[in-house]
Simulated assay, not measured.
Amino acid sequence: MSAFAPGSARLTCRALVVDREGRALHVPDAAGGPAVVPGARAGEGDRTLLAAAVRAVTGRTRLAPGDLCLTPSLLGAPVLVEATGPADYEFTFALYLAREPTEPLPGADWLPLDRLESAALRERLSAAGLDGRPKPDMLHRLRLSPGTRELILRHAAGPAVRTPLVPRPAKAPDAGGTELNIVGVHLYAEDGDGRVLLGLRHPDSAFAGSTWHFLAGHCERESAVACLVREAHEEAGLVIDPADVELAHVVHVLHGPSARPRLQLVFRAHRWQGTPSLREPDKCLDWRWWDADGLPEPLVPYARAAIDGIRTGRAYSEMGWCPA
């Protein structure tokens, strides 16, 4: 099967900036509609999806990167990830003001969080307990990357310290223009006992031989959900109705400085027909249901990260982007 054409994956990144009064920043809609949370397409110079969200704010307001900081509860993870079309995905990140603006932001409006149009976003924000006030004392409770630790400490130090929220990276060798991402789709299925379906990849597999992994594949010229439905039938004989599928977790993976980034979409299937069977024995040697507290070894690392994220209610993870 051919690899997914990554240029057709459109990633919109929004920055929901929360002030001390628990209000969210909105800016005029370019199409003339109601005010919206600032957003931009991920593109050249955006090392992460969070960087694109920050660029969306600074490009539409007088705020600078140093005026923003991460939230203690969410850090660099999005508060919501939604599929908005066959190859369209929207990531919403929550940020705090590191300091109150000295002057009103022209054209900007601040709306209470409970007035946000998206019910899913209101629910996620309520669960995160955002109050607009970073809490540096959480540092000792978290395993933070150096960059994340610097961001929280920067806020604690006060307005005299102004460093970029997300640094621009050096381009990969021979990179030209927007960095294209490979998109993979993965099936997250649980049986009646809450066990997760995983397959043991063939030793000769080009990726992760003799390793347990989700049922997975890359898109041909089709939507991500259509790809998942097709792969489930081709690989394991499962019949899935697209209406019974929802996006459960996203892992943005970088396997090395010269590797192409990969956006791994993990879809939960609520129902299906059939019993997992070995339809492609040259790719998979065994299908088995595993208790989430006793996952097999070796297991593809980003699959483990996705399972952990789904169990804890997190929508997004990153791997390989930041130094340990």
Rank of each mutant, 00 (worst) to 15 (best):
D131L: 08
L130S: 07
R154C: 12
H140I: 07
A127C: 02
L142K: 10
R141S: 07
H155W: 13
R115L: 14
M138I: 14
A108I: 06
D131P: 05
D109F: 05
P159I: 09
R133Y: 11
R133F: 11
A157F: 08
L111E: 08
L153N: 07
S118Q: 00
L142A: 10
A160W: 12
L130Y: 09
H140M: 10
R141T: 06
D114T: 07
R154F: 06
G158A: 09
S118F: 00
R122E: 03
I152S: 05
R154G: 15
P159Q: 11
K135Y: 12
G129M: 13
A156I: 03
L111M: 12
P134C: 03
L144V: 08
G132C: 04
P146F: 05
R124M: 07
G132H: 05
D137Q: 14
R141M: 02
L139R: 15
R143N: 09
S145V: 09
R149E: 15
G158H: 10
A108L: 04
P136K: 05
A120P: 02
S126Q: 14
H155Y: 12
G129F: 10
L121K: 03
G132N: 02
M138D: 14
S126C: 09
L151C: 04
G107S: 09
L116M: 00
V161L: 13
P136N: 05
G158E: 12
R122M: 03
R124K: 15
A119F: 03
A127M: 03
D109K: 09
L113K: 00
P112K: 04
K135D: 15
L113G: 03
T148V: 12
I152C: 07
